[in-house]
């Protein structure tokens, strides 16, 4: 019954990240794309909040968006995906919630 939440806005300029995190249930997952990958920036509040999510919540990020932004050390729990992996992931969850 799990949901994949998809964020693409920067957590530093937009409220979607803060609103999404509390809604993640134990079996849910979060995928960061575009400017949402800035949430992985080491030493920042969003990165700390991602580290503190319940262990069962899976965390993914689009690799090319991460690489483009030179984010440095990433939290160990994040799994990087290419677009094929992204597509495969969307099939694994019952529903996708895109935070448009």
């Amino acid at each position: 019954m799990a949901t994949l939440h998809l964020l693409s806005h920067s957590p530093f300029s937009d409220g979607r990240f803060n609103s999404c995190l509390p809604l993640l249930g134990d079996t849910d997952a979060l995928l960061l794309a575009g400017d949402a990958t800035y949430a992985l920036t080491a030493g920042t509040k969003p990165a700390t909040e991602l580290e503190q999510l319940p262990e069962q919540v899976a965390l993914f990020a689009l690799e090319e968006d991460v690489q483009a932004r030179a984010l440095g050390m990433l939290p160990t729990r994040v799994q990087l995906l290419d677009y094929a992996g992204f597509v495969e992931l969307t099939c694994r969850y019952e529903r996708i919630n895109s935070w448009l």
Partner: peptide, 18 residues
């Protein structure tokens, strides 16, 4: 509350956030 919200979302076939 927050826990109720994640249960709610998982009860529907589709979710659209606007």
């Amino acid at each position: 509350d927050d826990a109720g919200l994640s249960t709610l979302i998982n009860r529907y076939d589709h979710v659209i956030t606007i």
